[in-house]
């Protein structure tokens, strides 16, 4: 049986862990390293850091945070936000990150995905899609932390990323991000049916039942959560126990 991964998503602005609603109106939560360590101790399977304003300013500020986190947190760490060059990737991987998530630069230059895969291996390259619903059954790819539209259709773009050789796909619903109102059920259902690489879904988890419901009905590989943990609605442990008690396969931490 396949085990699902529960991933803690930490959006960063400057030195702070922040959380917005629909990727906007960013509210400061606290010190990212402290939250990372807490989630690690509680049994998180993986962490994703996203520098939420990096694309806007054209740089990723996470090197120091990642370096500190990975000296005391021994689970995989993915870093995204403002990654533009192979050198950016190299620096982050050398800081202790295991994978990088690429969105904006990949939209500008799709071959960047392939170059990154060929240089660092597919296991290090996560394709990141930020999706916004624009009409019934139709989602558009957004870049720059959910600020810019691209005109690209999410399903078509997903196939392009797979073709470029990415090792994993992270899909974030702009509409649901930070709302705690549940995942974009239609988007997840649609994407999970056509995705051939491991799929991480993100955006909207506010209650434990949101996770259970989406996992029961879709073929997913991983779920990334933010608000539900940051605002202490649940701990990693309580979430995992609930899901395991409801027959979802997850890593148990002794």
């Amino acid at each position: 049986m396949k085990n699902i991964r529960l991933i803690g998503r930490l959006d960063i602005k400057g030195e702070n862990l922040i959380k917005g609603i629909q990727l906007e109106g960013l509210r400061i939560i606290g010190n990212p390293n402290e939250y990372a360590k807490l989630y690690y101790q509680q049994g998180i399977d993986e962490l994703i850091y996203i520098d939420s304003v990096a694309s806007l300013y054209g740089r990723n500020n996470l090197v120091d945070i990642v370096s500190k986190t990975t000296s005391e947190v021994f689970v995989p760490v993915t870093v995204g936000g403002g990654i533009r060059t192979l050198n950016d990737i190299d620096i982050l991987l050398k800081s202790g990150a295991d994978k990088v998530a690429i969105n904006t630069e990949g939209v500008k230059n799709p071959n960047f995905f392939r170059e990154a895969v060929e240089t660092f291996g597919a296991q290090s390259i996560v394709g990141s899609i930020v999706a916004k619903k624009i009409s019934s059954n139709n989602w558009e790819v957004y870049t720059d932390g959910g600020r810019e539209k691209t005109g690209l259709n999410v399903e078509n773009w997903l196939k392009v990323l797979e073709d470029k050789g990415i090792g994993e796909l992270l899909i974030t619903s702009v509409d649901r991000d930070g709302t705690k109102s549940g995942f974009d059920y239609e988007l997840v259902s649609k994407v999970s049916k056509i995705c051939n690489v491991p799929l991480i879904i993100s955006g909207g988890a506010g209650e434990k039942n949101h996770l259970l419901e989406i996992l029961k009905n879709n073929n997913l590989d991983a779920i990334a959560v933010g608000s539900i943990l940051h605002f202490k609605n649940q701990t990693v442990k309580s979430l995992k126990s609930f899901l395991i008690n409801n027959d979802i396969k997850l890593r148990l931490v002794q």
Binding site: K2, N3, I4, R5, Q123, G167, P198, N219, D221, A222
Partner: peptide, 13 residues
């Protein structure tokens, strides 16, 4: 065949 087990195998076992 059913795409339940994809590659790479990424996860905790």
């Amino acid at each position: 065949d059913n795409n339940n087990f994809k590659l790479p195998n990424i996860g905790w076992y």
